[in-house]
């Protein structure tokens, strides 16, 4: 479903701020894979997701989504294949617009936007049913402006928007990091539910090792722009936070340096 071949990206090349963010990433995701991504600060986790989403052009390599090389496609064209949820709850929704208007925009991802009315009656009913799944009572506030919602509600809505038109690939970039633990757990369970129900292929960056172990069928660990660990299936189920930290220092020869990950 997703194939990364030797993807490289250096920020600010040739300056004192030069940062080799991705140093030849190779990764293949099968349909239905739900991969959690962990790693220290500046390991390249978010950078990898942004490279796939097309936020900026990569220096080298291939990004193939469902057989299509998307390297030359701009961000808005890749959106046809990719659903995204960001770390910042403010980033995934349009605050001055209504909940149903946001959903209607998401319902047209990858389609031509015409001069037809932006939302149909039938869609309103569909959205009502879909919002019920979230269990946040948003189905009764469909004409409320999204700016009035809490961070957790906005993330849940963004998730729904990202999966409304079934994406080939779902990218979750620390999407629970800005939420309180209770809300984060709720959003994560919604994530699991939506991925399972739609049989989605997903990449989820998280700083929480427990979450990384508990969710998904595969776990990758990154360090200094490379994937240093790739565990799946039964082997992944047996992982513990301690064993992960040990594996990290074995493969990288360093101490694990993400305080947020260790504190959780």
């Amino acid at each position: 479903m997703l194939k990364l071949n030797n993807v490289k990206k250096t920020f600010n090349p040739g300056t004192i701020n030069e940062k080799k963010a991705l140093c030849g990433i190779d990764l293949q995701l099968n349909p239905g894979d739900f991969v959690t991504v962990i790693g220290g600060n500046g390991a390249g986790k978010s950078t990898m997701l942004n490279a796939i989403a097309g936020v900026w052009p990569i220096d080298k390599g291939e990004i193939i989504i469902d057989g299509i090389n998307v390297v030359k496609l701009p961000e808005h064209k890749r959106a046809k294949y990719v659903g995204r949820v960001f770390q910042d709850p403010m980033m995934g929704t349009s605050a001055p617009m209504e909940i149903q208007e946001n959903l209607a925009i998401a319902a047209r991802r990858g389609q031509r936007r015409t001069l037809r009315w932006s939302i149909t009656k039938k869609e309103k009913q569909e959205f009502h049913e879909l919002l019920k799944i979230l269990g946040l009572g948003l189905e009764d506030r469909m004409t409320a402006k999204v700016g009035l919602l809490s961070g957790g509600q906005r993330q849940a809505l963004t998730l729904l928007m990202a999966t409304l038109k079934k994406p080939k690939l779902l990218l979750l970039d620390e999407h629970t990091a800005a939420l309180d633990p209770k809300t984060a757990a709720k959003v994560l369970s919604i994530t699991d539910k939506l991925i399972a129900e739609n049989n989605l292929t997903a990449l989820m960056v998280t700083h929480n090792m427990k979450d990384a172990i508990a969710h998904g069928n595969r776990l990758i660990m990154m360090n200094e722009g490379k994937i240093i660990l790739d565990v799946r299936g039964e082997e992944k189920q047996k992982l513990t936070v301690e064993s992960l930290i040990q594996k990290f220092s074995e493969t990288s020869g360093k101490e694990f340096s993400n305080d947020r990950a260790l504190l959780n």
Partner: peptide
């Protein structure tokens, strides 16, 4: 929201 708009195509 530019980010959201691009992410929605």
């Amino acid at each position: 929201n530019l980010n959201m708009s691009r992410a929605q195509g």
